[in-house]
Design a protein around this nucleic acid. Structure first.
Length: 492
RNA sequence: GGGCCUCUAGCUCAGUCGGUAGAGCAACGGACUUUUAAUCCGUGGGUCGUCGGUUCGAUCCCGACGGGGCCUACCA
């Protein structure tokens, strides 16, 4: 380490560096192993309510991070915290550790340090469960000062230093745990229905499965452009062609588009496909996945959100038709046959501008303006325009409409499901139309994927499919913004 | 992409109608054997996001750039 580096250090780091040096001279600032006998959690659980000023005679050895330090002349107090946030008090007294060890403690131990203490379980005069140390050791010296524990950290600081956020904020740890348990719940719902979890490529020669702009990268080995996937759909369908009749994948998608409170450039996506299912069976599955997750993780379908509001996920969720609900909202019949000119008139009346060649885009924009804001309860919105859903089967009884639903929860799209298009000839036609859009400059239009079409030509059974944003599921269950549901969201 | 706001000590924030800055916690020195954000006395710590411009003088006014936020348009 150069002297330049040290001389430029903020004073608090320089002091801690010196303490680290001294610890290493005396023994070790970062010992490889410590004779720990108990976790803080175990000790707390074992002595739930001792009276004040008690000695137990029980010896323990434990370690934790120092969150508070209260050093007096001959008796020092420290609050040690475990990784789960559980805390216990350590006491170091002159008569138990001796003058030398007490002085070293006061000289070398800072807030944030991991320390080891061994001693007797007691309660203090004020009743605080404590380890009265007969011995202490540095477990790991911290070089940087901890933030002020009495003010909330700024949002940006929390995101950029999530490890500190996790140390000081209970809710940060809770959200990590909730997310992990939601994942387990989803997998268990799938496992109970004989689904197989698979992983499909995230680096793709051709991106597809959604309308979105991809991230591009380059492979040296293949000397070719590659894309980070925008969706796993086309590979999961290949798996269904291959006979994996119930498959799902939970993994990251990447979309080179805007970032805001509900969008992150990389986000966790769940997709599931079920041979001989359709969009009706996928609605049942999706409702089960979410309701089970709420029940397994939070113990209720009446989820309390961050702002105190209740998100009621219970019961049978509403199912409405896209064209029907739009027609009711605008007060006139809107169908897949309604001329664009008429749609434009409706749009003009409420002063929304739509500039897109697709009829379906008009319908969806109008729906989002008139109906979407009125949805508060979880609602399946069914039967979408064909020209905006190139991978979806035509409706079994309605013309110009496909068997697709979107699930809206608290006003944003939570999941989507389809009766999958499995006719390779129709799929080729749909891709061709997408290619025309791409030629006209639509950066989100899909590509014609010959390899995928070849797979379909080998016969894909009739299937239902669904996709759900995991981060958004976490948002629905907690009321947090997407950057709070992702442990380490992308920051510049 | 467009509009508005913001960046000051390790952290959270004040502040200067233009004369180079403060608080609380944290840190350093001292006192203290029952503290709970311990207390008391004392001390240090800043390229005021970066680069330019205006000015005798800029942390403050102006411009550009960078980070962040909110609103707005688009994708889940």
């Amino acid at each position: 380490m150069s002297e330049d580096y040290e001389s430029e250090l903020p004073e608090q780091i320089a002091f801690r560096m010196a303490k680290r040096e001294k610890l290493n001279e005396l023994s070790d600032a970062y010992p490889v192993a410590l004779p720990i006998t108990h976790t803080i959690e175990a000790v707390k659980a074992h002595y739930p309510n001792l009276e004040a000023d008690i000695t137990t005679g029980d010896q323990v050895a434990l370690a934790g991070r120092i969150m508070f330090l209260r050093n007096t002349g001959k008796l020092c107090f420290a609050t040690l915290q475990s990784g789960t946030g559980e805390r216990i008090q350590a006491m170091l007294s002159l008569d138990k550790v001796g003058e030398e060890q007490l002085e070293l403690w006061k000289e070398l131990v800072d807030l944030g340090d991991h320390v080891f203490v061994a001693g007797e379980i007691i309660t203090s005069k004020r009743g605080e469960l404590s380890v009265l140390a007969s011995e202490w050791k540095m477990a790991a010296k911290t070089l940087r000062p901890m933030p002020n524990l009495h003010n909330e950290l700024e949002e940006e600081f929390r995101v950029r230093h999530r490890y500190i956020d996790l140390i000081v904020r209970d809710r940060a740890r809770e959200v990590v745990k909730i997310r992990s348990e939601v994942m387990q719940s989803l997998r268990s719902t799938f496992a109970n229905q004989a689904y197989t979890e698979i992983e499909t490529p995230m680096l793709q020669v051709m991106h597809g499965g959604a309308s979105a702009r991809p991230f591009k990268t380059h492979s040296n080995a293949f000397d070719t452009e590659l894309y980070l996937r925008i969706a796993p759909e086309l590979f999961l369908k290949r798996a269904v062609v291959g006979g994996l009749e119930r498959v799902f994948e939970i993994n990251r998608n990447f979309r080179n588009e805007g970032a805001d409170r509900t969008h992150s450039p990389e986000f966790a996506m769940l997709e599931a496909y079920e041979a001989y299912g359709d969009y009706n069976s996928m609605m049942v599955l999706t409702q089960q996945l979410i309701q089970n997750a709420a029940m397994d993780v939070l113990g209720t379908h009446q989820v309390v959100l961050e702002d105190g509001e209740i998100n009621d996920l219970g019961g049978q969720w509403d199912r409405i038709s896209l064209f029907g609900s739009l027609s009711a909202a605008v007060g006139e019949e809107v169908t897949s046959e309604t001329p664009i000119a008429n749609l434009k008139k409706i749009a003009d009346k409420v002063e929304i501008e739509i500039d897109h060649p697709l009829h379906g885009k008009y319908v969806e924009e109008l729906w989002e303006h008139f109906v979407k804001p009125t949805l508060s309860k979880p609602t399946f919105v069914m039967d979408f325009p064909v020209d905006t859903s190139p991978l979806t089967r035509d409706h079994r009884s309605q013309k110009g409409v496909v068997e697709k639903w979107d699930l809206y929860v608290r006003g944003f799209e939570q999941a989507t499901g389809y009766s999958e298009l499995v006719d390779p000839v129709v799929q080729r036609e749909r891709f061709t139309k997408q290619a025309e859009l791409a030629a006209k400059g639509d950066p989100e239009a899909m590509r014609l994927d010959e390899e995928f079409l070849k797979a379909l030509e080998f016969g894909m059974p009739p299937s239902g499919g669904m996709g759900m944003g995991i981060d958004r599921l976490l948002m629905s269950l907690t009321g947090l913004g997407i950057r709070e549901t992702i442990l380490f969201p992308l920051v510049k």
